[in-house]
């Protein structure tokens, strides 16, 4: 099966998957930071690798990216990307500090963000597993804090995704009060796609 043959029904099903998973992740995040975190309606689609960057920001912008690899019957990757200010704000919120206290990431705050990625990924996958009856196992996450271009391209390449075009399900988390802006990407592998769609009763 080629990505390109996805029908609107397939894409709607994938958006719904994104909705369920990201909804749980947003709830988990809200509880963690004790503030209402909102999310955009998820988008699903096949896009050119080079177009992914502009969905998030400028290539030279500083971002923190937590990546988890998903194994099991529907393998893929999950990426959680935060701009620099949001990463610092989330650390402050999780540690109960005044917003603006954290000004740089060190080993401790990096582990904190990795753990945040772990919790969000876990919430996302649990919801997804329940909806599809497929067992999905996340890896221990890895974090990079650097230029968006370097981080995002490496997240795909080092995770073993080499395609010209990739299927992504993405949403944006945000909070107006403390200006948290995060992007959440689910990048299923080709074989995962058919497994997920079949589990939802769709033929491919």
């Amino acid at each position: 099966m080629q990505w390109i043959n996805l029908s609107p029904i397939h894409l709607d099903a994938l958006k719904e998957i994104g909705n369920i998973g990201a909804g749980h992740a947003a709830t988990a995040l809200s509880k963690l930071v004790n503030q209402m975190v909102k999310m955009e309606v998820p988008e699903a689609g096949v896009i050119r690798f080079n177009d992914i960057f502009s969905m998030v920001g400028r290539e030279d912008e500083l971002v923190a990216c937590v990546i988890s690899k998903v194994s099991g019957k529907a393998p893929g990757s999950i990426l959680f990307i935060l701009d620099e200010k949001s990463a610092h704000a989330l650390v402050d919120l999780m540690m109960g500090l005044k917003i603006g206290t954290t000004r740089e990431l060190n080993d401790m705050t990096s582990s904190l963000l990795e753990e945040l990625g772990n919790i969000l990924t876990g919430a996302f996958l649990t919801a997804l597993s329940q909806a599809t009856n497929i067992t999905l196992v996340p890896s221990v996450p890895a974090l990079a804090f650097d230029m968006l271009g370097a981080v995002l391209s490496s997240a795909f390449l080092e995770g073993g995704c080499f395609a010209e075009e990739v299927l992504i399900i993405r949403t944006r988390f945000f909070n107006d009060q403390t200006k948290i802006d995060g992007h959440f990407f689910l990048v299923p592998e080709v074989k995962a796609l058919s497994t997920i769609l079949k589990s939802l009763g769709l033929s491919i």
């Binding site: 690899k69 890896s139 890895a142 974090l143 990079a144 490496s154 390449l157 080092e158 995770g159 073993g160």
Partner: peptide, 18 residues
């Protein structure tokens, strides 16, 4: 040719693309 992410699970880092 950097390695941006250091996965604790070695099986993931096998690609060693950088």
């Amino acid at each position: 040719g950097a390695q941006m992410f250091s996965f604790k699970d070695r099986r993931i880092s096998v690609f060693n693309i950088g």
